[in-house]
């Protein structure tokens, strides 16, 4: 039953699942608390457009994916700040226009390239050794940044105005948070795919959100769900010949609904003035 551990592609898939599942669900805590879910989705499609352009230009996809992702995340952040239009409208426009770019670039690629589609739907079993190294490296960068600024990110998520007025460089840190979202999306692209990476950011954290009133517990539960479901997704996809990305996401969704119907989380005694 565990003969798969001998296969190098399976070793790589499991290591990748561990890092992608862990990083997405950790950063996801801030994405959920700060209300950046749609920015995450928009960024994923932009990063995919970057990958498509890289295939068109025949250059390595990583840098273009990060560039597209970061620019879109920042643009969304600026739109949120300016607030000239409702955020769902402006993000919706970014979201669809980057997708249009991706489809345009793919259309322009002369040769048929199935490989591009692996970034759209994810293919964790085909992660190469060099891709895995990049995923691990970027994961460490994201986690180190999260650790360094966790209290500020927490404060920004709670109330950005108040954080700003307390002398915290809230605006630069907000854009750093957006950058981390873009990097995380890009590092997860090959493993999970642009269509579903959004779920990896959102579902474990929002499941944990329903279960506890404590940030540290919410973070721990979210990471545990992220890692366990990502690894389970790889194993189920190996044993039952299923695509791993959707398997992982559907496992997470199941846990989300279980948390939803569980009895309400512990609340403090109700009080009056």
């Amino acid at each position: 039953m565990f003969e798969f551990l001998a296969y190098e592609f399976m070793q790589r898939a499991l290591i990748t699942a561990f890092f992608v599942g862990g990083v997405c669900s950790w950063l996801g805590v801030f994405v959920v608390l700060r209300g950046l879910a749609f920015i995450g989705a928009g960024t994923a499609h932009a990063a995919f457009a970057g990958v498509a352009l890289a295939y068109l230009l025949q250059v390595p996809p990583l840098l273009l994916a990060i560039a597209f992702g970061v620019l879109t995340a920042w643009a969304a952040g600026l739109l949120e700040e300016k607030g000239r239009m409702k955020l769902d409208v402006s993000i919706g426009i970014l979201f669809t226009s980057t997708m249009a770019m991706a489809i345009l670039f793919i259309g322009l690629i002369k040769a048929y390239s199935a490989e591009v589609y692996s970034y759209l739907f994810g293919s964790i079993l085909s992660v190469t050794p060099s891709e895995m190294k990049i995923i691990v490296l970027l994961s460490i960068v994201v986690v180190a940044t999260l650790l360094a600024f966790s209290k500020e990110f927490y404060f920004i998520a709670f109330d950005q105005d108040m954080a700003e007025s307390s002398g915290i460089p809230a605006r630069p840190l907000f854009f750093l948070m957006l950058t981390l979202i873009a990097i995380t999306v890009v590092l997860s692209l090959k493993a999970i795919g642009a269509m579903l990476v959004f779920a990896m950011l959102l579902i474990p954290a929002s499941t944990a959100y329903q279960l506890t009133h404590s940030l540290s517990r919410m973070t721990r539960i979210s990471i545990a769900i992220g890692i366990v479901t990502a690894i389970a997704g790889v194993l189920l996809s190996y044993w039952f010949d299923l695509p791993s990305g959707p398997t992982t996401v559907l496992l997470q969704t199941t846990l989300f609904f279980i948390a939803l119907i569980l009895p309400q989380r512990h609340t403090g005694r109700s009080t009056t003035n």
Partner: peptide, 23 residues
């Protein structure tokens, strides 16, 4: 304020120290 934001009263007050202490 998100009523479900996972934060205790003490943690809320402690945030007042973040800007004073710095990054």
């Amino acid at each position: 304020i998100d009523r479900n934001f996972p934060i205790t009263v003490f943690e809320t007050v402690l945030m007042g120290r973040y800007g004073v202490r710095g990054l």
